[in-house]
Simulated assay, not measured.
Amino acid sequence: MNKVVIALCAFSLVFASCKSDKKKEADEETVTEEQVVETKVEVKKIKLAMEPKSDTQVSGNAVFTDKDGQVTVVAVFEGLQPGSHAIHIHEKADCSAPDGTSTGGHWNPTNQPHGKWGAAEGFHKGDIGNFTADENGNGTITFNAGGEWCIGCGDPNRDIVGKAVIVHQGTDDFTTQPTGDAGGRVSCGGIIE
């Protein structure tokens, strides 16, 4: 009889231990699932078509991606004159004027001087910079604005929605005020959600 009692006690201890291990595993799985939910990153994207302006054939597209508070734009163009071209964000998503002037000036919500992105002397929030078109008139630019921009956040100093992308005929010299002496507007696309 004592052997039976001892065997039952041993079985009870093993069963309780297994049950405790299973509960611990279930608790760990729950924590893991909760952590996965907490680490989901919101990604917003806007893709826009770039249309020719100023009697040119410059077209293309731009994709803005806002991931984890960091905004990047990748833009691809064709029909450009070979060489360097400026690209900026302008005040209004209105590409209705044949020369693109309906977009207004450079987007500059903080009233800084025109300059190269990140310059200590200041720069417009729309001062992206220059990119190069190859001998076939094709050009690409990838630009990371970090946390300086957002998509649809409502902050007037950061929100790019309602603005426009403009490609210029020439190169931005980063010093001439307020435009960088970049020349005419050859392509336009509105940043609209």
Rank of each mutant, 00 (worst) to 15 (best):
N111I: 13
V58K: 00
A133R: 01
E25I: 06
A75D: 10
K22G: 00
V37T: 10
K47G: 05
E42F: 01
E29R: 15
D21F: 13
C18P: 01
Q35C: 07
V76S: 13
E91D: 15
E28N: 12
D27T: 12
K44M: 01
A97K: 14
T103W: 05
C95L: 15
K116Q: 15
T101G: 06
T132R: 01
F131T: 06
K67P: 03
D66R: 04
T101V: 11
G60C: 08
V76K: 15
V76H: 06
N61L: 14
V58G: 01
T132L: 07
P109V: 10
D66M: 04
L13E: 02
T101S: 13
G126M: 04
S54Q: 06
A26D: 09
A49I: 02
A93S: 12
P82C: 07
E91P: 03
S54I: 02
T30K: 08
A49M: 03
P98H: 08
D21Y: 10
K23E: 11
S54N: 08
N61S: 12
G118S: 06
A49S: 08
V71R: 02
L13F: 11
D94V: 09
G83D: 12
S59A: 10
K116E: 14
E34C: 05
T110K: 12
H124Q: 14
N130T: 13
N61V: 08
N108Y: 06
H106W: 09
H90Y: 05
G105A: 07
F123C: 02
E42G: 13
F77D: 00
C18M: 13
V43S: 04
S17M: 14
S96R: 09
D66P: 11
V74T: 09
